[in-house]
Design a protein around this nucleic acid. Structure first.
Lengths: 111, 111
DNA sequence: TGACCTACATCACATGGTGAGGTAGATCGT
DNA sequence: ACGATCTACCTCACCATGTGATGTAGGTCA
């Protein structure tokens, strides 16, 4: 069916989440997300690259081209101070939202 | 800015979540969601009613008009067996997704 | 030569939430 | 009688953004 819209609004959080542990290039970011989520989240290139561009434009990331040695050149991304603040904010909002969903779906509770 | 797309993909879950504890009408569903989420989630009528229509069309809900006594007539919704199955499926998927997000954003951690 | 991996990117398309607007019945104060 | 304010339903233009397909290039290996 949907395999859904759940990602909406969390992509920035996922990207910032892996980048806060160190500089990475795009393709590698996708791999990290896949690994850490035990392959449950498989970043599509259709949203990953646009999302990286958005975050760079917003000042959350800083990017630079570099020769990778093997294969094509790579674009490395580093998180900025603003990016870290954005991560904290989005992370908190996500936790709050997730908690709310659990409260609503948990049922009457008192029963 | 964002105050988010987070809802995307969770609206059905929220609605089914409150309806699995008993029959309710639309306006009341909104109130329940607001209450249970401690007002963190405030259902907009712009998505609530369309979502109810979608779920009804999909067979997850069964609806009927009834005079409320006071005020305008109300449309009551009851969850079907299919709706319960949908709730279980979406609930499981949500938990898995939420867990994945936490894994990704938790950081290197295990290293 | 062909297959396949890395690595980046763009684009038409679809989903569906946001916010505003509209109808109507009921209640209450002035 | 009038306006304000609830309840209760509905619709619609707009927009953000994920999906899936496609394109470009360099590399390795059979």
């Amino acid at each position: 069916m949907d395999r859904s819209q759940l990602l909406k609004g969390t992509t920035a959080l996922l990207i910032l989440g892996v980048l806060k542990d160190g500089e990475l290039y795009g393709y590698e970011i996708a791999q990290r997300i896949r690994e850490r989520s035990a392959a449950f989240i498989d970043p599509g290139e259709g949203w990953l690259y646009p999302a990286l561009h958005r975050l760079e434009k917003q000042g959350a990331l800083q990017a630079s081209w570099r020769e990778g040695g093997l294969g094509p050149r790579r674009r490395y991304y580093r998180i900025t101070d603003g990016g870290l603040r954005m991560f904290d904010a989005q992370s908190a909002e996500w936790e709050q939202f997730a908690h709310s969903v659990r409260l609503v779906t948990a049922g009457a509770g008192n029963v």
